[in-house]
Design a protein around this nucleic acid. Structure first.
Lengths: 133, 133
DNA sequence: CGGAATCCCCGTGGATACTG
DNA sequence: CAGTATCCACGGGGATTCCG
């Protein structure tokens, strides 16, 4: 494979990092790559969203998980929370610069999933057919 | 932002997909982006690995989780399991072509984490300093 | 509207021990 | 060596209710 060349170098950069269980990136990675983190970031790419807008957009998430994840993302500096004093209260979430820079590779990943999900589902079915029960 | 242009189009491709809670990609994404999935794939980029090698390399993972994740990844068609008849038994795991194509965007993401973890940790500390307790 | 708080359940995931 | 099996604890995460 041609790609493996670049990939090997890329992975070596991480060898002493991400694979170490006591690495600082672990908890952060967990937070972002967790089920909802990815989708929330992705949802914010198109621009600022209000709480309820996100709630609808992400689909399937509970308010609890949404607010929880948002808080964590704000803390990590990926998302910015903006409160506009008004009645009723109006809160807007948007990506910080850091968050936008994350969105790039993240989008690539999501794009890959969009393109290859069908193949993977097929693989699963093939696999299940061979190993009944 | 200049990037937001491309990102918007990219995310729109997913709008009807990944954000729908009943989308087929959800469970698969969960499986890959789960805590260990990412690292296992990444570990396999440098080439085939045996079970125990992976166990050491990933660092912090239990055999249970490793074998469990590997089984799932094999089922999804991302990883191939090769048994060489020998005593003692010798099993090797390697990426399939599909798995390698996934590794590309995944590596980009891991690379981003490697480069930006420091900034995020700093952001967290800043945040925590402001909100005592 | 945008959450915080409480309750509760079930799955994830670790430790340990056993098998082929 | 490469797993599988069993037990068990913790916390992720959903539903509901209440607050500013």
């Amino acid at each position: 494979m041609v790609v493996s060349k670049q990939l090997q170098t890329a992975s070596r950069l991480l060898a002493g990092d991400a694979f170490d269980s006591r690495c600082a990136s672990r908890p952060i990675m967990d937070q972002v790559t967790t089920r909802w983190g990815t989708l929330i970031i992705a949802a914010l790419i198109t621009g600022p969203h209000r709480f309820s807008a996100l709630h609808q957009r992400v689909g399937g998430i509970s308010q609890k998980m949404l607010s929880q994840n948002l808080k964590a993302l704000v803390r990590t500096g990926l998302v910015e929370r903006t409160v506009e004093p008004a009645v009723p209260p109006q809160v807007t979430y948007s990506l910080t610069e850091l968050g936008e820079s994350l969105a790039e590779p993240l989008c690539a990943l999501l794009g890959w999933f969009g393109a290859n999900t069908a193949a993977m589902v097929a693989a699963q079915q093939r696999h299940d057919a061979l190993a009944p029960r």
